[in-house]
Every structure is written in structure tokens, then in C-alpha cells.
């Protein structure tokens, strides 16, 4: 795959390095000459382009139209949005991925057809939540359009879900339990599956139904 990464900061550099190691053709675009020199030393001159990734003439020079994916990981959300829009709308790149710094911006990115957004703030928050011994519904992934989320949680003892069948729980129509992990066993559940305290579940849900789901699983 030919992958173009725009923004050669910490994220862009490590991402480029690991994609290069797994055998992909990559090009990191960086506008700061000092930073670009560092990247050339580390990744090799063939994999670094000194230039502005928001400039459409840069895109023509690096052959953006034959890229399989463009990943925008600069520190500015507006730059990442413009990079993905140019890649998608003007050059027909099949997959665009953007880093976003303000989680509130996810909506407009999805609305304009950016395929995937990764919110650094939310990723860090989710990792910390998982590391804390506090029962919670952890956000794992936001899916394109529709605003559907993948969440993870553990059935709390005495919660509405403890000892009940899924169909009896009154889970809203726009939420669905898709996987249950019990001890070492993974169960693909259906309506008659009985949930028990300690089960770890994966569910997809709309943002509106997240609170209802949380109350059913955690009991609060």
C-alpha cells in the first residue's frame, strides 16, 4: 500500500516508522525544514517530503492520486480536515484518516466524509478509564456517519443486567450487545443469552442510548 502521512511530529514519525517496518510504501510530508532533516536521517530521504501538506501543488508533486490512504496527523484540526477533503474530493483517495484534538470536531469530519477520526484526547481518556478500578462504559471507537459508537463495559453485581436474559433488559433499538466475554470464553449473544456479573460486554450504541445502556450494565 502507498500511504501518505501529513505531519511529521511524534505521531507522524512513529506511525511512519512502524508502517515502513511492515513493508508499506510511505511518504511523510513535513513543512518544517529542521524537522524534515531529522525525519530524513531516521526514515531515509525517499520517505520524506519537505512541503506544505495543505497545498494542492504539493499533492500533485507527490502523486496523491495513486495513494491508497492519506493520514492527517498535524496538531491542527482545521489543517487535518482540509488535507482529508483535498485527498478525498479532489484526488479520489479511497481512505482518509484524521487525528482530531478537540473531540467536538468529530461530527463535522464524519459529516464531510472523512473515513476515520482518531481523537487523541478520547484515546488517552479511555486508556486511563480502563486502568482505573472504577466501573464505567469505555468508548472504544466511533464509526463513520450515523454517530454509532463501540463501547466496552463489565456487568456490575446487582445491576439490571445481572442474571437476566438480554431480551428482558429493555435495551433500546439503536443499541446492541455484540459480544460477551465470560472467563476465557467468547460468546456471540442473542436474545436468550443470560448475562452474569463479571461478564465483559462489547456493544454498539447511538450516543442517545449510551446512558440507558450504562444504567442497565452498571446499575447506575
Amino acid at each position: 500500500m502507498y500511504i501518505i502521512i501529513v505531519g511529521g511530529g511524534k505521531v507522524g514519525y512513529y506511525l511512519g516508522k512502524s508502517l515502513l517496518e511492515s513493508g508499506h510504501e510511505i511518504l511523510v510530508v513535513e513543512k518544517n525544514p529542521n524537522r524534515a532533516n531529522f525525519l530524513i536521517d531516521e526514515l531515509g530521504a525517499d520517505h520524506v517530503w519537505l512541503g506544505d501538506g495543505c497545498d494542492s501543488s504539493t499533492f500533485e508533486q507527490i502523486g496523491l492520486n495513486r495513494a491508497d490512504a492519506v493520514i492527517a496527523v498535524t496538531g491542527d484540526d482545521e489543517d487535518n480536515l482540509v488535507i482529508c477533503l483535498l485527498a478525498k474530493q479532489k484526488f479520489g483517495v479511497p481512505r482518509t484518516i484524521a487525528r482530531i484534538n478537540n473531540p467536538r470536531n468529530a461530527k463535522i469530519f464524519a459529516h464531510l466524509g472523512v473515513d476515520v477520526t482518531v481523537s487523541t484526547t478520547e484515546v488517552i481518556e479511555a486508556q486511563i478509564q480502563r486502568a482505573l478500578p472504577i466501573p464505567s462504559l469505555v468508548h472504544l471507537l466511533a464509526l463513520k456517519r450515523g454517530g454509532i459508537e463501540l463501547v466496552e463495559g463489565k456487568i456490575a453485581p446487582g445491576s439490571p443486567a445481572d442474571g437476566k436474559r438480554i431480551r428482558e433488559l429493555g435495551i433500546p433499538d439503536d443499541a446492541l450487545v455484540v459480544m460477551v466475554v465470560r472467563d476465557d470464553q467468547t460468546i456471540v449473544p442473542y436474545g436468550d443469552t443470560t448475562l452474569m456479573a463479571g461478564d465483559e460486554i462489547l456493544a454498539v450504541t447511538s450516543p442517545q442510548s449510551k446512558e440507558v445502556l450504562k444504567r442497565i450494565i452498571l446499575g447506575k
Binding site: E78, L81, V82, H111
Partner: peptide, 14 residues
Amino acid sequence: DNTNIMASYVAKEI
């Protein structure tokens, strides 16, 4: 430019 583009899309689309 990029700020103007994003602000305009937020106004238009959202």
C-alpha cells in the same frame, strides 16, 4: 484559509 474552510463547513453542514 483552513480555519475559514472548516468554520464555513461547520456553519453550512451543522
